[in-house]
């Protein structure tokens, strides 16, 4: 990672010790145990995440500023709203939109191979390292169904994630008595999120995840996706009962159309 970008982040966050955790396409993620506002005497051991959206030099400066600010604010607003709705999401601490910085509470843990517990890393771990069959056993099915449930609940509240990939789904073990394969999914990275009740937007949301599963975890992607969709229906029913069921059916029908567009797209407009 180019050190000047990290240096810029540090410059925006004076006196905050930063440990870099990951470099995504759009943002750097750091951890720190320093709270942004509390005086030194009141600091605790809590770990926070600082998400920093750096300026992208390839973009025109006006476009860059527009995107950075918009996505930071949008993400923070959605995370706040989701917290109020009871959907599992990291707790917000602070936001500095023009600089592209969001502070939140730490979620997830490190896997046996030292990687963050994203769904992607965990599935890769099962597919490549773990005992054969573990990638498709009941534990895995449960987790993917839970993922579908969370998305279902999100969509029932007419919020669309905008960037559902297996890197944007973290797994945490919120209770101390959970065993090694027991995880709860937390959706993160709402920079491309939006408010929408349209079946089209929700279907595209699901389609993006479906394709992400297919391209990143090709061997079992069909199974994974089936479990996600099962959970999706459950999430709708839980939040919305019969109306939820109707919305779910509408979205899934639309998903079929979106899939067809992908496969049969007329390539010349």
């Amino acid at each position: 990672m180019a050190s000047h970008i990290i240096a810029q982040a540090q410059a925006y966050l004076p006196n905050i010790p930063l440990t870099m955790v990951s470099q995504g396409a759009e943002a750097l993620v750091f951890t720190t145990t320093t709270h942004p506002c509390l005086p030194v005497s009141e600091q605790t051991d809590t770990t926070y995440i600082i998400k920093y959206r750096p300026s992208k030099p390839y973009r025109h400066p006006k476009l860059d500023a527009q995107i950075t600010k918009h996505r930071t604010i949008s993400e923070a607003k959605i995370m706040h709203k989701l917290g109020q709705l009871g959907i599992r999401v990291p707790r917000l601490v602070a936001v500095d939109a023009p600089k592209g910085i969001i502070w939140m509470h730490f979620v997830g843990k490190l896997l046996a191979n030292g990687e963050m517990s994203s769904l992607k890393n965990w599935l890769w771990y099962l597919e490549r390292v773990s005992a054969p069959g573990s990638a498709t056993d009941a534990g895995t099915a449960r987790i993917l169904t839970q993922v579908g449930r969370e998305i279902g609940r999100l969509h029932m509240h007419d919020i669309v994630h905008g960037d559902l990939t297996t890197s944007n789904i973290l797994l945490e073990q919120p209770h101390t008595d959970m065993n090694d394969t027991d995880w709860e999914p937390v959706l993160i990275d709402y920079g491309l999120g939006s408010y929408s009740g349209l079946p089209e937007d929700k279907a595209v949301d699901l389609y993006v995840l479906e394709r992400a599963l297919l391209s990143t975890h090709p061997v079992f992607s069909e199974k994974y996706n089936a479990w996600v969709l099962e959970g999706y229906a459950l999430g709708h029913a839980e939040v919305g009962g019969k109306l939820g069921g109707k919305k779910c059916t509408e979205t899934l029908r639309r998903l079929d159309e979106v899939r067809m567009r992908g496969r049969k797209r007329s390539l010349l407009g």
Binding site: Q66, I67, G162, D163, L164, L192, V208, A212
Partner: peptide, 13 residues
């Protein structure tokens, strides 16, 4: 002169 246009990235698409 840069004119602001809608910017429509949707995930990986």
């Amino acid at each position: 002169n840069f004119v602001e246009l809608p910017y429509t990235v949707k995930g990986m698409d």
